[in-house]
């Protein structure tokens, strides 16, 4: 699939056809999700209405981790198979990942203040997510740090791979150490600890986030493909006629 999509003309052709449906699904899931999250779903027995922050906070956190994993995998493919399209996808995904990380941190802070009594604490979960934010930042900076883009790609990919260790640390931080953040509610041994009426908006929002991320990822890959083409045209001057 990677080789199939790596051809820019084919990539544009396939994605142009799928884009309206993906964007439509994103809009659909997000609008139903928001109605479900803010109006239909019940308040929590302990946290009251603040539980509604969960429906943006938790999907953001999932996306932040998911996109980082995507970057790590595509970086590995780029390093091992020397596939330029892999590096390009990783580079396109980074701004999306950092946005979701920022959303996760800010909504978490807005949730922490009324429930815990603090905007921020330095427990293992919060600190490791903040570290994820800096990894994204470093990845994006390294990509631009060299005059030769292929060197930037390579060093950023190495950082992404080394930083991948942080992903399981984030996931299991709440189990390994005493944290103020509560343990996992969904992916745990005894099954979800969230009532079904609250799982519905959570999954709807998560689906909406995924489809939005796909739309933005495709758009950003197109941007990077165009940039690469423009760069090549400029280097080759008038020689490249297409």
């Amino acid at each position: 699939m990677f080789n199939f999509l790596a051809n820019p003309a084919r990539f544009n052709q396939v994605t142009d056809r799928l884009m309206p449906a993906t964007a439509g699904l994103a809009g659909l899931f997000l609008s139903i999700g928001i109605i479900s999250a803010l109006i239909i779903s019940p308040p929590d027995y302990q946290q009251g209405d603040t539980v509604r922050i969960m429906y943006v906070h938790v999907p953001s956190a999932w996306m932040a981790l998911f996109i980082y994993s995507f970057i790590a995998i595509t970086s590995a493919i780029g390093l091992i198979w020397r596939h330029p399209f892999a590096h390009l996808s990783a580079q396109a995904a980074a701004p999306i990942g950092i946005t979701f990380t920022i959303l996760c941190l800010t909504t978490g802070s807005l949730w922490g203040k009324p429930m815990w009594g603090a905007w921020w604490v330095w427990d293992a979960r919060l600190t490791s997510v903040l570290f994820l934010f800096f990894l994204y930042l470093g990845f994006m900076a390294l990509n631009k740090a060299f005059d030769d883009p292929s060197r930037g790609e390579k060093s950023a990919a190495i950082l992404a791979l080394v930083g991948f260790i942080n992903v399981p640390v984030i996931k299991f931080s709440v189990d390994w150490w005493n944290t103020l953040h509560q343990p996992a509610s969904l992916l745990r041994a005894d099954g979800p600890a969230i009532h079904s009426s609250m799982l519905t908006p959570l999954f709807l929002m998560a689906l909406g986030f995924i489809f939005v991320a796909v739309c933005v990822l495709v758009t950003r890959i197109k941007v990077l493909l165009l940039k690469r083409r423009i760069r090549l045209m400029r280097i080759n001057g008038g020689k490249l006629r297409s």
């Binding site: 928001i34 803010l38 209405d49 603040t50 509604r52 922050i53 943006v56 906070h57 953001s60 959303l103 800010t106 909504t107 807005l110 949730w111 203040k113 009324p114």
Partner: peptide, 10 residues
């Protein structure tokens, strides 16, 4: 004060 800003930021 906490819920609306969270949704607006998102």
């Amino acid at each position: 004060y906490y819920i609306w800003p969270a949704y607006i930021i998102a």
